[in-house]
Computed example of a mutant assay.
Amino acid sequence: MEDILVKTSTHDYPIFIGDMLRFQLHQLIQKDYTAILIVSDKKVAELYVGDIVSNFPERKVYQSIIPVGEQSKSIDFFYQLHSDAIKFGLDRASLIIALGGGVVGDLAGFAAATYMRGIDYIQMPTTILAHDSSVGGKVAINHQFGKNLIGSFYPPAAVIYDTQTLRTLSEEEIRSGYAELVKEALIADETFCNRLLKTNLTNLSSDQLTNHLTNGIKIKASIVGMDEKEKGIRKHLNLGHTLGHALEAEKGYGEITHGEAVAIGLLFSLHVSESLFSRRLPYLPLFHWLKHNNYPLNIGELDEESVINRMKTDKKTLNERIQMVLLKQPGEIIVQELSDHDIQMYIQSFRRRLVKE
């Protein structure tokens, strides 16, 4: 079992990574909580909620199950979690366990941050993608005008990552998660990036996956430790997300996975970076890797004005000017302000390049 410590201004918390950890919660959770609410989606709940409950035979354990998909990161299901917590009698000494992917983690974490002004929660990610969202304490729900616009910084009490749960993931979910791993590698570790771009996602070994996840989490934990509230370097973790989030909202949440949208956003960031800085960056290696691993790269017809307006809802935007995270070279990141006209020109040239390649 790997044990990583994340340092924050609120409190430090551990990340445990290993096989079958869902059966060891009674050892990993030391605090004596008055009640536990497990939040999960219907698909994950069928597979693993029973395993979680079996850890706590002497405690009050309740469940709140939400539908699968990004649509559940809404004000309605946020309210439902609060209603369930009240109905089950949770108090300030209770615990919420977020069992699932990024949607469950973000929603349950935001509910924990706001229920009775904040109670403990533990992230138990069951997807590769959630290795990123479960670390760092960013919790949120979506607004119809943009992703993650309603939320908070609220660190978990722990992250418990049972890698055995990843064996049931679909190819789509694996693709989605690996886009965030590539993002982290581009930001901080060129050697790791080169290794990822040689990986065949349809033939992953357990050792490969655990190694890649551990490297990605260490990068994320290091950046969060330096900049918890996203005042500086943590903004770099938004590489690929300015266009990625806009595509998710434009196409409708759930029509394209978060990771697949980020993958297109990463390519776009590299495309813009090559043009702005007149440097050869790993656009082509990334493009060919994404294509080889069946990422959907055909973004189709776009209302460019609408996409640009959605990009302006990105949390880095200042005075209605889009701030894009760009790459001078792997490991060297810069945040650059771009005009609407420039963004439109880059979107048009990017779409032509996607078809040409």
Score class of each variant (00 low, 15 high):
residue 159 V to N: 07
residue 187 I to N: 12
residue 173 E to A: 14
residue 224 V to Q: 02
residue 152 S to F: 13
residue 132 D to Y: 11
residue 230 E to R: 10
residue 186 L to C: 13
residue 192 F to K: 02
residue 158 A to E: 07
residue 130 A to F: 02
residue 191 T to F: 05
residue 165 T to F: 06
residue 246 A to K: 09
residue 168 T to Y: 01
residue 254 G to K: 12
residue 196 L to D: 03
residue 236 H to P: 03
residue 136 G to T: 11
residue 228 E to M: 00
residue 217 I to R: 01
residue 150 I to C: 08
residue 131 H to D: 14
residue 149 L to A: 11
residue 249 A to V: 15
residue 235 K to I: 08
residue 230 E to S: 09
residue 177 G to R: 01
residue 168 T to Q: 08
residue 240 G to E: 10
residue 166 L to G: 08
residue 154 Y to K: 10
residue 143 H to L: 07
residue 125 P to H: 04
residue 204 L to K: 05
residue 218 K to N: 11
residue 193 C to K: 06
residue 230 E to A: 12
residue 249 A to C: 15
residue 236 H to R: 06
residue 143 H to T: 04
residue 125 P to W: 02
residue 235 K to M: 14
residue 224 V to M: 02
residue 207 D to H: 05
residue 188 A to S: 14
residue 145 F to P: 01
residue 238 N to G: 11
residue 184 E to P: 00
residue 191 T to H: 09
residue 143 H to I: 01
residue 228 E to H: 04
residue 243 L to P: 08
residue 214 T to C: 07
residue 144 Q to Y: 13
residue 250 E to Y: 15
residue 158 A to Y: 09
residue 149 L to N: 11
residue 238 N to A: 11
residue 251 K to A: 11
residue 231 K to Q: 09
residue 208 Q to C: 00
residue 174 I to L: 02
residue 199 T to V: 12
residue 251 K to I: 03
residue 189 D to K: 07
residue 135 V to G: 05
residue 144 Q to G: 09
residue 254 G to A: 13
residue 136 G to F: 12
residue 193 C to A: 15
residue 141 I to K: 05
residue 136 G to A: 12
residue 231 K to H: 03
residue 189 D to Y: 07
residue 137 G to Q: 06
residue 169 L to P: 01
residue 254 G to V: 14
residue 184 E to M: 13
residue 180 E to V: 13
residue 224 V to F: 03
residue 125 P to R: 04
residue 237 L to G: 04
residue 139 V to F: 04
residue 143 H to E: 04
residue 203 N to K: 14
residue 194 N to Y: 09
residue 225 G to I: 03
residue 135 V to D: 05
residue 218 K to E: 10
residue 166 L to I: 08
residue 204 L to T: 04
residue 155 P to D: 10
residue 252 G to C: 13
residue 140 A to M: 03
residue 232 G to A: 15
residue 174 I to K: 01
residue 215 N to Y: 00
residue 135 V to M: 08
residue 245 H to R: 09
residue 233 I to E: 02
residue 241 H to K: 04
residue 149 L to W: 07
residue 188 A to Y: 13
residue 241 H to L: 03
residue 149 L to Q: 12
residue 210 T to P: 02
residue 190 E to F: 07
residue 202 T to K: 15
residue 129 L to T: 03
residue 130 A to Y: 01
residue 226 M to P: 00
residue 163 T to E: 01
residue 163 T to A: 00
residue 205 S to T: 15
residue 216 G to H: 07
residue 143 H to N: 05
residue 159 V to T: 10
residue 159 V to G: 04
residue 155 P to S: 14
residue 131 H to V: 12
residue 139 V to T: 15
residue 192 F to D: 00
residue 231 K to L: 08
residue 251 K to P: 01
residue 234 R to V: 02
residue 160 I to A: 02
